[in-house]
Write a protein that binds this DNA or RNA. Structure first.
Length: 503
RNA sequence: GCCCCCAUCGUCUAGAGGCCUAGGACGCCACCCUUUCAAGGUGGAGAUCAGGGGUUCGAAUCCCCUUGGGGGCACCA
């Protein structure tokens, strides 16, 4: 579509206080989609203000996770670990503290903000009283009109003030990109709010305004849970003399019970989905369709295809529940579309993990994996499913419970007889190459000869050689297993049945 | 308690006044294919468009109310 529109700048500003959250990824994705669709710039800024938690690792997780999804930014920290990229750096909030302090000083000087000496105990008592009186919590304004002498006196006592922003009376409104007009009376904002803590560190709401202005962010696209922050931010923009960006509030991603998605009720870490074998194409496709649709009947779209069709105005207003079934279906769609070599590469880590925790005994070669693809690719809802699907190929013993060896219509004796006969046929088949279409005819002939049902015999062989009742097509499976192991497993099964029913 | 947002099949959604006796997808059921499992194909059940008032010749679509759901009200982000 359009080449570029330098006036449109959007951003994602995650806080590295946890692993990359599905909701953060979705917000990042929609910003990315909007920026790419209109040819604007996508900025990544880290709100690394909370030093208390182990942020370095989470920071890496977020950067890496977004890149894994294919969500790339034009300005911001380098996902590979290099320096910041872009003309508006630094892109880490902590390194912009000087500008935050300057902005706060300016508001203080203009009396658009004031020092507040209230103690946590006082504020807590206020809140409790309001709660008891069934009043909404709000700052009572104790320090709003202190005289210079009163302030000096408190300072002299060594008290450290926080900085509060004066909320002016009136109505603040904006034209939301997805919900049209929203207007909020500032009387409902909870009174003057703190923008700088007593220890001098600035608060999120304030920093965002300063940084967004400095980075010339034109459109702020974020979750619906920020709607009540927006009037405060608009007020601060006005006070600071900054242009007010365009706002767009995305619907939330919900737990299956309809509440805001949470770790408690859902799996929220992108990395967990990745670990379970969801691929980026599936995840991104799914996320894009949570709250948006192209308005056509297309279901499976690549990231570039979504970029092409994306329209921020078509975004849904109501929240969307996370539906894992649909995600799995879409993931399967994308796994089926992968090129063989690509799929082999993506499967390998899951096989390695299975070796590491003992689910399989050895790691198959790339060639082995590639050979299996025709019978495996269309059966994988996730990459991780490969272990359950064909793990029996790389384990020594396969038969856990001999009782599943006996098909419904057969008894143990018949099963033993059937397996023995099949073993004989397959062993004799030594003269011919061990290929799927050569294995089948003689076994069918055997079935006809004994008046058995092909399904019963095949099922007995299937369970004897794989330990499972559901597998890829039998003869392809036997070929993958190889002659030696097939015969050995048949022998083992026959033995186990012999022990169970002597005679 | 207060403020704000939202409301089409179980779920994700199409629908921007007549094309809607509401379409698609996931999931579910049946059948076909078939040695099992998938995949694929075909068909089906599933929404009186939350309810009630308007506006209009005509409303899922516009307005109001009710109800329901959600979000937010920190010296968190």
């Amino acid at each position: 579509m359009p080449a570029s529109d330098p006036t449109i700048r959007v951003r994602i500003a995650p806080s590295p206080t946890g692993p990359l959250h599905i909701g953060t990824a979705r917000t990042a994705l929609f910003n990315y989609l909007y920026a790419r669709h209109v040819g604007g710039t996508f900025v990544f800024r880290l709100e690394d203000t909370d030093v208390a938690r182990g942020t370095a690792e989470f920071e890496r997780d977020i950067l890496e996770g977004l890149h894994w999804l294919g969500i790339t930014w034009d300005e911001g920290p380098d996902a590979a670990g290099g320096g910041d990229v872009g003309p508006f750096g630094p892109y880490r909030q902590m390194q912009r503290n000087a500008s935050h302090a300057a902005a706060a000083a300016r508001l203080l000087a203009d009396d658009l903000a004031y020092p507040c000496f209230c103690t946590p105990e006082e504020l807590d008592a206020d809140r409790k009283a309001q709660e008891a009186a069934k009043q909404p919590p709000r700052y009572v304004g104790r320090c709003a009109h202190l005289t210079a002498e009163e302030r000096d006196a408190r300072l002299a006592q060594g008290r450290k003030p926080a900085t509060r922003f004066r909320v002016r009376p009136g109505v603040v409104g904006w034209n939301d990109l997805i919900r049209d007009r929203i207007e909020i009376d500032t009387a409902n904002l909870g009174g003057d709010f703190v923008i700088v803590r007593a220890d001098g560190t600035p608060l999120y709401n304030f920093v965002v305004v300063v940084d967004d202005a400095a980075m010339e962010i034109s459109h702020v696209i974020r979750g619906e849970d920020h709607i009540s922050n927006t009037p405060k931010q608009i007020l601060m923009c006005e006070a600071l003399g900054h242009p007010v960006p365009v706002f767009g509030h995305l619907p939330l991603i919900l737990n299956p019970d309809g509440t805001k998605m949470s770790k408690r009720k859902s799996q929220t870490a992108v990395d967990d989905y990745r670990g379970q074998g969801f691929i980026r194409e599936g995840l991104v496709n799914y996320l894009a369709y949570l709250g948006w649709s192209p308005g056509t009947q297309e279901d499976v779209l690549s990231l570039p295809e979504v970029v092409e069709r994306f329209d921020i105005g078509a975004v849904q207003k109501g929240g969307a529940r996370f539906d894992r079934d649909r995600l799995e279906w879409l993931n399967g769609q994308w796994i089926r579309r992968l090129e063989p070599d690509d799929l082999v590469d993506r499967l390998r880590p899951f096989l390695e993990a299975a070796v590491a925790d003992g689910r399989i005994d050895r790691l198959p070669s790339d060639d082995e994996i590639r050979t299996l693809l025709p019978i495996v690719q269309e059966r994988l809802p996730t990459l991780a499913a490969v272990v359950d699907l064909v793990g029996f190929l790389w384990t020594e013993t396969v038969l856990g419970d001999p009782s599943i060896l006996v098909p419904k219509r057969w008894d143990p004796a018949t099963t033993r007889e059937g397996l023995a006969a099949a073993r004989g046929v397959l062993a004799r088949h030594d003269a011919v190459t061990w290929e799927a279409d050569e294995l089948e005819p003689p076994l069918r002939a055997l079935v006809d000869d004994r008046d058995w049902k092909a399904g019963d015999l095949f099922m007995a062989i299937r369970v004897a050689t794989t330990g499972r009742t559901a597998t890829p097509p039998l003869f392809d499976t036997l070929v993958a297993l190889g002659r030696e192991r097939t015969l050995a497993r048949l022998d083992a099964a026959i033995d186990s049945l012999g022990a169970a029913s002597p005679g």
